[in-house]
Design a protein around this nucleic acid. Sequence first.
DNA 1: TTGTACGCGTTATCAG
DNA 2: CTGATAACGCGTACAA
Lengths: 342, 342
Amino acid sequence: MITLKTSTINDVARIAGVSKRTVSRVLNGSVSVGEATRVRVEKVIAELNYTPSPQARGLASSRSFLLGLIYDNPDALYLDDVQRGVLEICSQRGYELVVHPCRYRSETLVQDCFTFINRSKLDGVIILPPVSELEHLAHALDQAGQPYVRLTSVMLDEPSRSVVSDDRAAAAEMARYFAQLGHQHIAYISGPLRYKSSVERLNGFELGLSAYGIKLKADWVLESDSSYDAATQCAMQLLSQQERPTAVFAYNDQMAAGVLKAAHALGIKVPEELSVAGFDDNLLASRVIPALTTIRRPVRQMAQLAATKIIMSIEDNDSAARHVAAKVAPTLVVRDSTLKYS
Amino acid sequence: MITLKTSTINDVARIAGVSKRTVSRVLNGSVSVGEATRVRVEKVIAELNYTPSPQARGLASSRSFLLGLIYDNPDALYLDDVQRGVLEICSQRGYELVVHPCRYRSETLVQDCFTFINRSKLDGVIILPPVSELEHLAHALDQAGQPYVRLTSVMLDEPSRSVVSDDRAAAAEMARYFAQLGHQHIAYISGPLRYKSSVERLNGFELGLSAYGIKLKADWVLESDSSYDAATQCAMQLLSQQERPTAVFAYNDQMAAGVLKAAHALGIKVPEELSVAGFDDNLLASRVIPALTTIRRPVRQMAQLAATKIIMSIEDNDSAARHVAAKVAPTLVVRDSTLKYS
DNA sequence: TTGTACGCGTTATCAG
DNA sequence: CTGATAACGCGTACAA
């Protein structure tokens, strides 16, 4: 039967006929242990199915073997992917993941995060966007000597503390794709420009278009709340104009879905009369009709990299973490919402 | 400046001029403490911003103040909602939430969960469907004396360990709605019938229809994988028939979106020629065109109830947890995908 | 290479 | 009502 009873380091020591100091050495992979002794101890550990108590371990060494995930992200698909990615790495290293949803706009966010970290004596935290863009949070963590890694879309910090998706390059790729389809009259519906990722995507998109000699008209660059409803409104306005764009790139898939809705409401056919693209490739993108052309970020991989980095900077040091890849490339996913301009 | 340094119970004791045993008593709300002493101690605690170390606390009392969340959610959209709901309750009681994504079909699932629980000495676990339907897991936890609460759609366990959404009643309500719209030719695309929730929804739907003298034709009850693609296939077949239904109820929103896709492919207009409804009210439901009529479960509330129950059965006992509501009622959300039969 | 003894911050036992 | 003091399970100077 499977049981919850656990044996202690003392049991192992006694049965293996060594002192617990030796068991401890084996556990922590110290070199100064005789080969024969090590094997014997390991055998007993396996037999007893012994696992050291993180509580006691933490108390003695002031560590917790707990990683924290700080986020404020309504897009839950992404969340699951992140959690799995992080755990794939950290659980095999003996860490567990404690989650901390929070509110980006809260006045007490920093205090709040510190309380969270303090209470559980977290060894490190991983921060998801847009919270990860908050410089005062990162700065406070740095001051406190608290290891952290942030997922962002621009390199805001040292590589040892960053995993960034190159949103700028991705947006440029989308621009290239639009241009190659022959579109000239292009609009961009941006998320709030206080998000770095908004700026990155806009810049990348403009850059990409300019390579083809296309300029984004100033009044065809709209800033909107990053929600479905706001984007719908925005698109309604944009598409009701006398002269309207033939292609629209939205800050994310939700917003692109809003554009789809607006187009539908105005009787504009997508993709025949209007090409639409989003960003994220979340669940929505492939379910909506027509399925959205979009950009996919390697979320799982980003999470794994973040976990690797944070564990390295906990166990080794920052310079080790610096050598883990810090930048990943999103990719273009072409579906049914975009078409050649004719 | 915000710092990570923490003071200990000894600091409090020294400054308050009492023994640490007394501080401990105040902390744990023991009655045998003089009013004056209590006030003095509490003042010092507040001044020092002191929080007891869960590590030490756990070591001494063999508890961890950690709750686990076990899930394998292909439809992870409500994950965030669950996490927030649980934390709203548990963090104010001094617990944190450790997540454990797993695989429902894994051979080693039970062993895997026990390793998870053991490693962090979790005080209790909350299990999400469909994993929550696995009787051998629940049984093993029970045998081991491990507190748990499961979210399900049928009462599979004692009320102290269950938070159930009444899917049967909800499906019956959908049936009533369909009937009142005048539909007679109705189909149901079910999820895998090994899921209890599939059976519940089917039964509830049939029951609800029968109250209006409507019978579900045997070959219009289809079992499908609970994915978008599978449901699309299924619906293609269903809707290609000579004689086709005028309304389709799908096991969940993803599948309903699949029906929408199939209808679109076949040139069938929704809702004019076909009414479609889903279940869950996830992100998809309101974004798809036409927006889906569906059933909304009070996920946040369910999570809160689960957290309340689990903490009660940890701190008090099961019978206390029994008195917390164990059943919640989903509600019908009418949108644009359903219409009067004409 | 291995072992002894102590400390980490709490809770709990048992006197006073 | 309060206070010494012993656990709890593990890491680690310091010895041997």
